[in-house]
Design a protein around this nucleic acid. Structure first.
Lengths: 193, 193
DNA sequence: AATATTAATTATACAGTGTCGAATTAAACC
DNA sequence: GGTTTAATTCGACACTGTATAATTAATATT
């Protein structure tokens, strides 16, 4: 059928990203398929293709949704934190990744073909998460070092990320690490003291 | 044909892993296919299936090969290093990942189904890399802190890994980080001082 | 030396996948 | 009411990993 008015273009986009995000959250990136998604929302693959152009673009939208949720989660946790805001940030980073394991890993596993680079909107979302953490890093830094805040934030994000990644992909299990959050926080403390 | 004597079972394994590793090195994990690999070495998919049982097991073998090469590379670099061995270790970590981009990323992107866990032989290889770095960390640590060496090594591996990962997957580009190795090394120095 | 056994290799089939263009068909326009 | 427009579906293509049955070459047995 054509130009069905049961969903506007925007509604359809929302519908697809929503269900796509749910499927990845439940079954993981490896088991994700556009056909299954289409069937679930009562459309055909062609429609998804028509709306997003390719699986890659759909994945960017789905991962973008994950970034939004992540930002929201971090922001919420930081809102209600008083003391030890760095600790809250690190813990929230881990919590989100562990609770939303599959969609968080999809964020890491998916990569665009080498010739394409990330769309600006996506980069903005990443920068948004960084800005959130960046404020805490800046606040925690002694007065003489405030200028380092930006660069240090990037580095600490990577630091925490590494610990989080090793936790989720089994490397820390293999190496006998049982308190990864504690370790990550210790590295952060080493850097801001 | 059957029981062809042009390759023994071991030779065949070696042949497959070798060509598989080469293909991933060149085209990346996403473009890897058992059929292409089989054709290249003059066999059929069935043979690969017969030898390795599944793509997952083949991938473990290929990634195992990457770990071997990585270990070898690190070990070589550390052999000829005198001063600043920690810096050499961090730089070598990055160098290998950048030069062998695709196979290094395959190491991170590939994941077994959730119910299976990594075979002992694979875990041993990961532990081998850790042991290599562990010695340098232990040496760099002040006398009073030698007991921390093991735990700290795990944490610093994760730290460097995070920086390396963000370098390769474009996150650092998005965040404006232009000297990731320097940043990683700074975090390491923060921790061992 | 001929035959029977064993197992490596191939052939074939199956149920999927993303992509894509042509054929529909519902809605909007005149 | 007829025509244009574009959303949706359909069908085809070239792949993928998996799996089993059919071959066939090497080995063992007689």
């Amino acid at each position: 059928m054509a130009r069905r008015s049961d969903h506007s273009r925007d509604e359809l986009e929302e519908l697809i990203v929503n269900e796509g995000h749910r499927q990845i959250s439940e079954a993981g990136y490896a088991n994700f398929s556009a056909r299954k998604l289409a069937k679930k929302i009562g459309y055909t693959v062609g429609t998804i293709y028509h709306v997003f152009g390719s699986l890659d673009h759909l994945m960017l939208a789905i991962n973008g949704r994950t970034l939004d949720k992540w930002h929201h989660y971090l922001s919420l946790k930081l809102e209600t934190a008083d003391e030890d805001r760095l600790q809250v940030a690190v813990e929230a980073y881990f919590e989100f990744a562990i609770v939303h394991r599959h969609s968080w890993l999809a964020l890491m596993d998916f990569r665009l073909p080498e010739d394409q680079d990330l769309p600006e909107s996506y980069v903005q979302k990443v920068a948004g998460v960084m800005a959130l953490v960046g404020r805490e890093v800046a606040d925690a830094l002694p007065d003489g070092r405030k200028a380092e805040a930006q660069a240090l934030t990037r580095s600490l994000l990577a630091t925490v990320h590494g610990h989080c990644f090793f936790t989720l992909n089994g490397t820390f299990d293999a190496l006998g690490e049982s308190e990864p959050v504690k370790a990550a926080l210790a590295r952060v403390r080493d850097a801001v003291r």
